[in-house]
Amino acid sequence: MKNLDICAAQYCSVAGDLNANIDRHVQFMRHAAKQGVEFLLFPELSLTGYEPSLARELAQTPDVALLQPLRELAKQSGMTTVVGLPLRQVGSDAILIGALVFAADGSQATYTKQHLHPGEEAVFSPGDGGALLNIKAEHIALSVCADFTHASHAQAAAHAGAGVYATSVLISENGYPHDSGLLEDYAREHSLGVLMANHGGPSGGWACAGRSAFWAPGGKRVVSAAGTGDCLVIARRRQGVWQGQVVECSATP
């Protein structure tokens, strides 16, 4: 079993400001690269914040040039990076909750949220998910928030051969006990490593819980942010054993 370094970027989005968030994503990516991270996961809609009322005007196509600095840095650092934003497809009016994957080899993939929370359908359309990622021979399955509340989603990931289930979320203080319990259950029931990247501060009117975390296969919580705020929650596998580290993110890398 190969060594592996994966990371949840616990991130406080600037509401509705793509340019500011791109700059801050670059800072986070540089911090993570210095830590030797090979897979970096940002929260749901990290590039805009969870702002449904702004989603239609902020939505981008997957190939938008605005995100080129993130693509280039992912390739330069050899760190596959997953960022969140509202997506529109060419020739369609539908707006999807998307996760763009900027791979270490310069390629790009898209994951779109399959299951919507009640009320999200007023703005967003259900997506189609996405393929497993391959990081150093480890298969990683993506999910976005409400996807993981459907037990069949994690089960399908395990059956497809995933070793890690990586979920980009917005989880509130009130929802955290229940939702983190579900993720722990998936780690135990399906022998999955489970990585969760949550917002580190308020977004879209929600008081987000932070406490991004990683559970090892079997259900043990290896590492978690203590609360809210910007940080990297890193899980490192060495000789088959998972260890954790939390790194605070300052304004400059």
Rank of each mutant, 00 (worst) to 15 (best):
S180H: 11
E120A: 09
P126C: 10
A9F: 02
S180N: 10
C231A: 06
Q76H: 15
L45S: 05
S250C: 13
Q155W: 04
F42V: 05
A20P: 05
N21Q: 10
V83S: 01
E57G: 02
L4K: 01
E138W: 15
E189H: 08
R56A: 09
G106C: 12
A55P: 08
I140T: 00
P202V: 09
A33Q: 11
C249I: 10
H115K: 08
Q60P: 02
I135G: 00
L70P: 05
A20S: 10
L170T: 12
R71W: 14
Y50A: 03
P86N: 10
I97W: 08
A65C: 06
F124G: 08
G161N: 02
I22D: 02
A74H: 08
L66V: 06
S212Q: 04
H117W: 13
G181P: 08
I22N: 07
F124L: 10
A156T: 11
V233H: 01
G229M: 09
A162S: 10
A226K: 12
V123D: 11
S168H: 00
Q108V: 13
V14H: 11
Q155G: 09
L41R: 00
L183H: 02
G240A: 05
A216G: 06
E51W: 07
K220N: 11
P86Q: 10
G204M: 03
L41P: 00
Q155R: 15
A151W: 08
L100H: 13
F148G: 05
L133E: 14
G36R: 14
L66E: 14
F214K: 03
P43A: 09
E248V: 06
V37N: 01
L40R: 00
S172V: 09
P177V: 08
T81L: 01
I97A: 11
C12H: 09
K136A: 11
E38M: 03
D5W: 04
H178I: 13
D147L: 13
A216N: 07
S152G: 14
M79V: 12
D230A: 08
S13T: 12
A154C: 11
C231G: 03
V144N: 12
F102Y: 15
W242N: 00
H159L: 15
Y11G: 06
V233F: 01
N174A: 15
V247K: 09
W242K: 00
N21R: 04
I22Q: 09
D23C: 12
K34Y: 10
V222S: 03
L41G: 00
Q68M: 07
A235W: 01
K136H: 10
H199Y: 07
V83M: 01
G78W: 04
H150D: 14
H159N: 14
D93C: 05
H153F: 15
Q114T: 12
T81K: 05
Q239Y: 06
F102I: 05
D5M: 06
A207V: 11
G130L: 09
S250R: 13
V194R: 02
G210C: 05
L195M: 03
H117L: 14
Q114D: 13
G175K: 02
E121R: 04
A158R: 04
S224V: 05
Q245T: 10
E38H: 00
Q76C: 14
A213I: 06
F102A: 05
P177M: 03
L4F: 00
P177S: 07
R221A: 02
A137Q: 14
L70D: 02
H25V: 15
L45E: 04
Q10A: 08
M79S: 08
P177L: 07
L142C: 11
A166T: 04
V144Y: 06
V164L: 05
G175S: 11
G210S: 07
R24S: 13
T112D: 07
